[in-house]
Computed example of a mutant assay.
Amino acid sequence: MPKAQVTFADVGVTVTVPTGTRLIEISEKIGAGIVYGCREGECCTCLTKIISGYENLAPPSVLEDQVLKDNLAPRHHRLACQAQVLGGEIVVKPA
């Protein structure tokens, strides 16, 4: 199975994960500071800044895209509960 490297800048931890893993799942396992409310992509609590590797995430779903727009999320921010890793290297931090 293809893998990706995800770095959480807030805690200085890099982990190797299988592709398809959501950022919130990784954050929970390593104790990073991404908080969440619904895990359904509706509340925008888990808004996360993608410092680098934005292209290594699956594109936002229609729901995620709308929630980001409704909440005026800055460029290169994603919902950690929705953002799936595709491969490569990604660096993130809680927004």
Score class of each variant (00 low, 15 high):
R39H: 11
E40F: 08
A73C: 10
L47E: 03
C43A: 07
C44H: 13
V67A: 02
P60S: 08
A32K: 12
E40S: 14
I51A: 04
P94S: 15
P60Q: 10
V91F: 03
L57Y: 06
T48P: 01
G20Y: 00
L79Q: 07
G41T: 12
P94G: 14
V92N: 00
V15L: 04
H76D: 15
V6H: 04
R22G: 04
E25T: 14
L72P: 00
V15M: 02
D65F: 02
A9K: 13
C43L: 10
V92T: 03
S61N: 09
G33I: 06
A73F: 08
T7S: 14
K49P: 00
P74S: 09
E89V: 15
Q82R: 05
G33N: 15
A83R: 02
L86W: 02
K93F: 06
A73P: 06
V91P: 01
Q5L: 09
V11A: 00
A95L: 12
K49M: 02
G31H: 11
I50A: 02
I50D: 05
N56L: 11
E55M: 06
I30A: 02
D65Y: 03
P94F: 13
T45I: 13
P18Q: 08
I24M: 13
H76M: 11
E55T: 15
Q66W: 07
G88S: 08
M1R: 03
V62F: 11
G31K: 12
L79R: 06
T7F: 04
S61Y: 07
L79H: 08
Q66C: 01
G20F: 00
S27Y: 06
I51K: 14
A32I: 07
L79I: 08
E89S: 15
E25Y: 07
P59E: 13
T19H: 01
A58H: 14
V11N: 01
I24H: 02
H76S: 12
D65V: 00
P94Q: 15
P18G: 10
L23T: 05
